[in-house]
Design a protein around this nucleic acid. Structure first.
Length: 272
DNA sequence: ATGCACTCCTGAACGC
DNA sequence: TGCGTTCAGGAGTGCA
């Protein structure tokens, strides 16, 4: 899916078109995304204005007037497109507004939406157990030290655990570990504070750079105007198995291993 | 509590 | 060209 930078990119793209706009109607073309879509989404949204658009973890939050929030998760292949020129058989939800339409397109249908009361957002089942925002001041070396104190899981798995830190996915976890010089299999509890501080810095820099680049488009990610993100050109380890490491350039090749069913890319020389 | 394999679904890439 | 296999940015569930 879109990870944090991609979701942030989508939120930023939506704001100019959707903020303070009223939904004229909402068309649910397909009730079964990852989870069944409630018909309430159509009835509640219709006639309501969007008061704010925020990102929390990998969720898009559309705050509506009348104390409702629509949560949208893009899953692996979800897109929100403003007035797309062509239609797709995977256009599952159409939000009609004065100036056109916002289309939710999701070939793999791993995405989902949930409607809840804004005042009860913190108790929402998808948000109540979620970890801290990686770009917030709450993420510090000492915070991670405490968080990982009893964790013998590999650091890579910990970074992907949304209940600990919310928003990192496979790509940016790989990139941040590479930049910090930490081997992905290293146990969380064995990483000293200095390295964790380093990791905080690299997590934040890689996410910020990716947001600037409009996210990474491996296949499905699109900005709301349909354009590609281009941070994939800045990957230093992700997808580079068998290629020379950009940092040490000592003829050492980037390797790939599987952790928790996901590919991890790393440099055996630079990451210890 | 933790870790894992499995699952949902489609499409692209690859090998034969 | 066509078919079958494998893999992919996520995350909930059930089990050991």
């Amino acid at each position: 899916m879109p990870e944090l930078p991609e979701v942030e990119t989508v939120c930023r793209g939506l704001r100019p078109h959707l903020l303070n706009q009223k939904f004229l109607s909402v068309q649910l073309n397909r009730a079964n995304l990852r989870f069944p879509l409630s018909k309430d989404i159509s009835t509640v949204l219709t006639g309501r204005k969007v008061r704010a658009i925020e990102r929390r973890a990998k969720f898009i939050q559309l705050h509506l007037e009348g104390d409702y929030t629509l949560l949208i998760h893009l899953g692996m292949s979800g897109q929100l497109l403003v007035n797309p020129k062509v239609t797709s058989p995977h256009d599952h939800v159409i939000f009609n507004i004065k100036d056109g339409r916002i289309v939710y397109r999701d070939p793999r249908r791993f995405g989902f939406m949930d409607l809840c009361a804004t005042v009860k957002l913190n108790q929402n089942k998808y948000l109540s157990n979620i970890g801290i925002e990686p770009l917030s001041d709450a993420l510090t070396g000492s915070y991670l030290l405490k968080l990982f104190k009893n964790k013998k899981s590999p650091i890579k798995n910990l970074l992907l655990n949304q209940q600990l830190i919310a928003g990192l996915g496979n790509i940016y976890a790989c990139e941040a570990l590479f930049e910090a010089g930490i081997h992905p299999t290293r146990a969380g509890r064995d990483i000293p504070i200095e390295l964790l501080e380093q990791l905080v810095a690299t997590i934040q820099s890689v996410l910020k750079e990716a947001i600037k680049a409009g996210g990474s488009s491996l296949r499905d990610h699109r900005q709301t105007d349909g354009s590609l993100g281009y941070f994939q050109h800045n990957f230093r380890v992700y997808g580079r198995e068998g290629q020379v490491c950009f940092r040490c350039r000592e003829g050492v090749l980037i390797q790939k291993l599987t952790q928790g069913g996901r590919s991890s890319f790393f440099c055996p020389q630079c990451q210890k």
